[in-house]
Design a protein around this nucleic acid. Sequence first.
RNA 1: GGUCGGAUGGCGCAGCGGGAGCGCAGGUGCCUUACAAGCACAAGGUCGGGGGUUCAAAUCCCUCUCCGACCACCA
Length: 904
Amino acid sequence: MAEKKSSSESKSQPQASGAKSVDYDFSAHERPFFEAWKDAGYFQRGEGFGKHKDDSYTIVIPPPNITGVLHMGHALNDTIQDACIRRARMQGYQTRWILGTDHAGIATQTKVDKHLAEQGINRREIGREKFIEACQEWREEYGTTIVNQIAAMGCSCDYADEKFTMSPEFSKAVRMVFTDWYHAGIIYRGKRIVNWCPSCTTAIADDEAEYQDEHGHLWYLRYPLKEPVDGRDYITVATTRPETMLGDTGVAVSPQDERYADLVGKTVILPLVNREIPIFSDFYVDKEFGTGFVKVTPAHDPNDFAMGERHGLEKINIFDETAHVVDGFGKFSGMDRDEAREAVVAAFDELGLLDHVEDLDHSVMHCYRCHSTLEPWLSEQWFVAVDALKEDALKVVEEDKITFYPPRWKSVYLDWLHNLKDWCISRQLWWGHRIPMYYCDACGWQDASVEPIATCPTCGHATRQDEDVLDTWFSSQLWPFATQGWSEAGNEAPDIKRYYPTEVLSTARDIMGLWVARMVMASMYCTGEIPFEKVIIHPTVMGADGKPMSKSRGNGVDPVQLMKDYGADGMRFGLLMQVTGAQAMRFDYQKIESSRNFANKIRNAARFVLMHLDGYIPGAPEPTTPADRWIFSRLAHLVAQVDTAFDAFEFGEVTRLLYSFFWNEFCDWYIEFSKSRLANEDDPADKLACQRNLLFVLETALRLLHPIMPFITEEIYQEMPDKNGGPWLIGAPWPDADALRAYIDNDAERSIDLVCEVVSAIRSARSRYGVSPREALNVFVQADAQDVVLLEAQSGLITSLGNTADLVIAEEVSRPAQSIVSLGSGIEVYTDLAGKVDFEAEAARLEKEKAKLAADCQKLEKKLSNEGFLAKAAPEIIAKDRARLADLQDKLERIERQQEELGF
RNA sequence: GGUCGGAUGGCGCAGCGGGAGCGCAGGUGCCUUACAAGCACAAGGUCGGGGGUUCAAAUCCCUCUCCGACCACCA
């Protein structure tokens, strides 16, 4: 990396103005460090060290689809995981971040279909085997894209051991679980109404259906009675889907509906098809809605299906798999569902049976993949009976064996499981895990099997395997353990023994049920253990307009472009800055930009430290001055606070702590304090101490920043003279809050706070009167005896930062006539501005300040004279308020004295 | 219909029982030898409305208004 070091400085792009800025060209800097970490083996199973040596810390990445490209959701989620795993690695845990991709059944099949169609190839023409080959080829060509993008982010996953949900190891696990559950009666086959996508020609699960409100109509259709009842010769049903009447096998009324009680048991002649169907009563019907008559189509509506089951109705399927009307329906046969709707309505109209039409907004199910309108369709499918699985999954969360961050997601999880219905797992696709069911058509034998069964064990005939594949989530639910050798040795697999259960799972809220809950169910059943201890539900990244990012809205942001523009570090820090407990975060370029600026600030601060190392001799840091003790104390607080925030996964808080320490304390003050010491060649011992302390604080800060900004911190670390944390920062020990606690020093903090106050007072005076910072000023500071001692000891800092000529610090100073005053807590700072003071303006300023002080005083006095407060408030609160009041009163008195002296 | 989240300076957000903060924008002055992607100094808020609990409420409770999410869903 040595050659990188020199180039980084020469690479600075000169500004048009000729300013000496040092810009940082991210893209050129990041990749080499990534390769170096990889080559040094940090991405693979970590050995661990220190007190956590024997503890594992594993994360499984939510496997991105092989069809996917990195989007903002990944960028955020992968940053969170990398921050966690990098910190754990530095803390000495045995870390492992398992990387892999998901075969993504429907998504991939759709993409490959489209890809083939462009070449004029139809899936059905080339057949199943050839199509799967095409999918494999597609995966090899495009499936690496997202992994490369994850690498560009700097994610420290185990790239050498990449997993795939259709690898031989994984496929075996899928077959094992299917077979096991089949034999346990958890998986069963049934003819049910499922959500059918006529475009993907497959069933999808209930969770995969998306509801959208649409403008529609309610058609009122007349169905003639076979025999008139009390002069009535027809009834009227209301429907949003008139075309399904072709499959009607009954008409239902509410049992409470006395209007039609005498019609129950009568028969209706279904128009167009002339089918005789019964009128019956069923509790499902709401007599208030529509006409009170419900047409019942058991094959095309789940509620009608249930009614059909209850009343033994025939289930007539009128659609084929592409939602075209099947043969046997005359002119309607062959029409698609929309044509059929129009034709049916027209036919009713022609026959005078169309009563009337109303507008109705209703929600319609759409395929989450292709967004086609879903068709409730009767078909043979495989299901998972969830009741047997959900008990344990509920229990471990109810008992907090698994913790959610933020905690409110716990109830979302529990609610989802409580309402869970059986899960349709069969998909009529080619790309996916083929269901390991084997059938003998000769003797009717059938069984599930992990290994293929070619001939029937009963009669010896050739078997055939089920044509369907499994829902992608069926394999995804096995991800935390099937990636760790479970299919070879179960719980005895070395990785399972060492790295399972995993530590944290980080994901978006939208797959809480689809994935998170199912992983828990599967893991509890298959391994008897929870799959992870903590679940982070991060906010959803929205567009700048607060709406979900989408192509049609044009509010999307490409993380790859962000990394180009702001660097991976800038993007990572900027994203984490926005992570709060909220359910959504509005993407904010300004945060990314300020993070990029922060990265630049870090680079420049490091440059300052590293360019002032002449005469440096390695050695232990030692805080010798109050400034040293102050920054060490601040650092000790910082580490403890960062630990607390990190442990609670409060990433926004972590970034804020790091940002303000590094920028507002280390750069704004400590580095400024150091300048005079570094320039003073007369005291080489102090200069050396200063160098060592600068290096120590910088290095500690780099370690704290590294999990979030891995590249720039590593780059700087490589340029440092001592590598106290080992050859690479990625493997350096995480700062130990307990060890640093000894540096906490309240006296030093008070001392430097005073210095800052005086310096700020001088700067403020300058600014108000337009006095250049280069013009040295006479300054008189009045303080109590104790503070005089503290300030006297630091007068050098005040002189250099405030640029003072004469600096007098005493318990009583005589104020120069042409000076202005600034009142601090317990101190008064007089800045001599010979001839420049606008006394009227000063008087106005003092008056304003006085008014504010007086108001604050009054509030506090009232509070402190309140007996209830004195009796019930915590003693330390009372003491604090008393001290505050004393300070305010003191200030008020002094301000009044100032006014007198000024003669106002 | 059910559940949950949000409303804080111009914008985006943090804070969630005891002195209103951050980033960005805007203002003034600075090429101060690490950094103009910067430095310094100012300015800006009765914390959505109403009620309650408390010695004390931006923070807890109730209610209203307005946004947002998820679940369920009527033919």
